[in-house]
Design a protein around this nucleic acid. Structure first.
Lengths: 220, 220
DNA sequence: GCATGTGAATGGATTCACAGCT
DNA sequence: AGCTGTGAATCCATTCACATGC
């Protein structure tokens, strides 16, 4: 099977960094800076400058030797590469605390993304909205919502027990990208991309750090 | 400068996996399974079995050749290694949507962690509590709260503009581990561990996937 | 026989170092 | 002179393969 090189061989870590660069470019643009060098970016992010050049080179040759990168041009390229020059619609499944908070999260409803609905199975909640106005809809209507509103991304904010089922339903409804907040090990499907945010793991990782650095605070 | 090997040379990725194993062991214990092999764990997580053995070997030799690992013993070891055999107290800074949701998140208030307060600078909110009863306290009292309640972990759930300041205040108050939800590039301090959860980056990464897999859905 | 623990081999990502353009 | 783009070198993580012990 010949490696088909869909996804243009840009690795996961690289794309994450591209997002970070994009945010920085937006800032630079706002303070009217016209060009930026890989060294300047490197300092801002505690990164190595050649890493940044390698990352950016993935997109083509956009820099000018002796000068650096044109801020607004590079930004535009990143926006395009990340596929957020249009608007991507998303649904959040689970209108509990977390789902509601996410629905109102600025950054989820801006710059290329739009939350069209919260889906839940509790009839009590149908028809209500989040503070910012995202409506809660019966999860059994998922298929219709996804089709009618061209939903591309699903967010799983339900209990770990229901997460797998929700994942499968989203996939069946034609959603190919999923952001999962449930602390569960999902059985994945080919063609559907899942990113998991596991808050518990993050906490435990911090705890581990605390445990193993306590006696030895002053390392520099 | 001699590499002092605090943190016992266990890498970040490894500790994250240890958390995952822990969760699995808790499950296995609940269904009364007594032992488990690296192969069985590997299947559950789509991982390589020798990776699991390597990870677990970091903690010492807890397996029995020919048999596998004793579920409850290994679990206990992991709990101990991750430093969650006691209770670690945490505060959440920012009593907005996200902060409130996090305060009530089960998994944040169980098994080794306890959220003692939400800190905010809006007097309107002082004295209120989250649904589950976490009180909102004036952020200017951070120092006292941290001292009196022996807070080890801080969660940043404020706007990106305030994140750096909150980070610095937490560090100054003696909090050495921080979970940051603000989409901002923090200037870090030595001795303080920060893990960032950047929701925006996750979304953009999914968008990138969608953009680059669209023409080529059927890869297996 | 079966499963761990671990050196050796592989594979990826980061960093170095420099040739090439402006 | 300055900074990009990139092969080469290095570093770290994952996987292989097998000796070791139950």
């Amino acid at each position: 099977m010949p490696a088909k090189m869909t996804e243009r061989d840009i690795s996961e870590v690289t794309t994450s960094r591209l997002s970070v660069y994009l945010r920085c470019l937006t800032y630079l643009q706002s303070i009217n800076q016209k060009t930026v060098s890989s060294h300047e970016l490197a300092e801002r992010f505690h990164l190595n400058s050649s890493q940044i050049r390698k990352d950016l080179a993935c997109l083509g040759e956009f820099g000018t030797r002796g000068v650096g990168y044109d801020v607004s041009h590079l930004k535009q390229q990143l926006v395009h590469e990340l596929g957020i020059d249009g608007t991507r619609n998303a649904v959040i499944v689970g209108a509990g605390n977390l789902g509601l908070a996410l629905a109102d999260y600025r950054g989820f409803n801006s710059n290329g993304f739009h939350i069209v609905a919260l889906l839940d199975n509790d009839p009590e909640k149908f028809g209500r909205t989040s503070r910012s106005g995202v409506p809660v809809i019966d999860v059994s209507r998922m298929r219709d919502v996804v089709r009618d509103q061209q939903v591309a991304i699903g967010v799983i904010a339900v209990t770990p027990e229901s997460a797998q089922q929700v994942h499968d339903e989203l996939a069946a409804a034609g959603v190919n990208a999923i952001l999962n907040f449930a602390p569960a090990q999902l059985r994945l499907r080919s063609g559907v991309k899942v990113r998991s945010v596991d808050l518990r793991i993050n906490l435990e990782s911090l705890s581990f750090y605390l445990k193993n650095s306590n006696g030895a605070k002053q390392q520099d």
